[in-house]
């Protein structure tokens, strides 16, 4: 289940920016960050809270997958 989340998040992010490695920091501009947050919401059916939009949760594919699993 957890691996499925990682694979799905990687694919979703890879459509918008190049993913070198799951734990590699992503250089996201504000529009792309919002786009990713909203695509995660649609894919995993939850709402991203403003307070959750932090580097700890969104600076890499691995961080995003961990965040999705925690929601």
């Amino acid at each position: 289940m957890s691996d499925d989340v990682l694979v799905a998040v990687r694919a979703l992010v890879n459509d918008l920016v190049e993913v070198v490695a799951d734990d590699a920091p992503l250089d996201l501009d504000s529009l792309t960050l919002v786009q990713i947050a909203e695509e995660l919401e649609a894919r995993f059916e939850f709402v991203v809270r403003a307070a959750d939009l932090t580097p700890a949760n969104f600076d890499s594919v691995a961080a995003m997958a961990a965040y999705v699993r925690a929601r």
Binding site: R49, A50, A51, L53
Partner: peptide, 9 residues
């Protein structure tokens, strides 16, 4: 400070 956070807030 953070456009995306303000957007969601």
């Amino acid at each position: 400070r953070s456009g995306p956070q303000v957007y969601l807030a």
